[in-house]
């Protein structure tokens, strides 16, 4: 109980300190506005050319709101891997080890706190742009609740992926390339640019089984199309992926800290 309170405070502190950087919101507004406008045009032309009212089970406004959510989820990701990379390279990790905290858990809670604030701000900006471009879609309180249930595991999964990359600094000269590849794989296989329903039928089951879709596609789909059965499946997949990746983190972390050599004070 004591430990939980400790890590919750770490999360709250990270969230509070992130609220201080509201100027970043202006930069994100431009970014989101450009991206969403381009996607709107791409899908407007596609719906128009095909004469379809629904693609992948989504209408044009739903498609844009889906993309608002995928962009919001992607842009809200804190820069965990580069920070861990720096902790490893500068030796700051050695200082963390003498604190009465688990380094991975402290990082997880601080990331969750930071991400919550960024997610909220991005969503406000993205929703405002979507309202302007295509107007609202049907939301219900129950549907939004189901969507919110899908978020914590998605954030945790993404953290675990990024933590593993940051730990790569123990063995690699530079982890930025690895992070770029991870983020791009999440983008494409996670359904950030195109819902999984529009992928070829044969690959869809594979993509649903991979953790990337549980980070982006799953929550975004719940946002525009809430469904209790889909949520149940999603949470099972997220849970399995968290167990596997947590095991990998434990192994890599243990191997990594054995390589720390600290001198001086």
């Amino acid at each position: 109980m004591m430990a939980l309170r400790k890590y919750t405070w770490i999360g709250l502190t990270a969230a509070r300190s992130n609220l201080a950087y509201l100027s970043e919101v202006a930069a994100r507004t431009v970014f989101l506005a450009v991206i969403l406008y381009i996607f709107l045009r791409l899908w407007q032309v596609t719906y128009g050319d095909t004469g379809a009212t629904q693609l992948g089970g989504l209408t044009l406004p739903q498609m844009l709101w889906y993309l608002v959510m995928t962009e919001t989820l992607t842009l809200s990701a804190p820069r965990v891997a580069p920070e861990i990379d720096q902790d490893v390279r500068t030796g700051a990790l050695a200082v963390q080890l003498i604190r009465p905290l688990s380094y991975p858990l402290a990082r997880l809670w601080s990331t969750l706190g930071e991400r919550l604030v960024r997610f909220g701000l991005n969503l406000v900006v993205g929703a405002a742009i979507a309202l302007l471009l295509v107007g609202p879609i049907a939301f219900s309180a129950g549907g939004l609740l189901l969507f919110l249930l899908a978020l914590p595991c998605a954030f945790t999964l993404d953290f675990l992926g990024q933590f593993l990359i940051g730990m790569g600094a123990f063995w690699l000269e530079d982890t930025s390339g690895l992070l770029l590849i991870y983020s791009r794989i999440t983008m494409i296989l996670g359904g950030m640019l195109i819902p999984l329903e529009l992928f070829p039928q044969a690959v869809q089951p594979w993509l649903r089984a991979l953790p990337f879709s549980s980070i982006i596609y799953g929550p975004a789909r719940m946002f525009v199309h809430p469904d209790a059965a889909f949520l149940r499946d999603l949470i099972v997949r997220q849970g399995l992926a968290i167990v596997v990746l947590s095991g990998a983190v434990a192994l890599v972390y243990r191997a990594g800290i054995r390589r720390i050599h600290a001198n001086g004070g």
Partner: peptide, 19 residues
């Protein structure tokens, strides 16, 4: 690694357009 990562990054966009 930076060169390869950027090559792959661009490749991902090509995958998107192919799909």
């Amino acid at each position: 690694s930076q060169v390869v990562a950027m090559f792959l990054n661009d490749g991902v966009w090509l995958v998107f357009w192919t799909l």
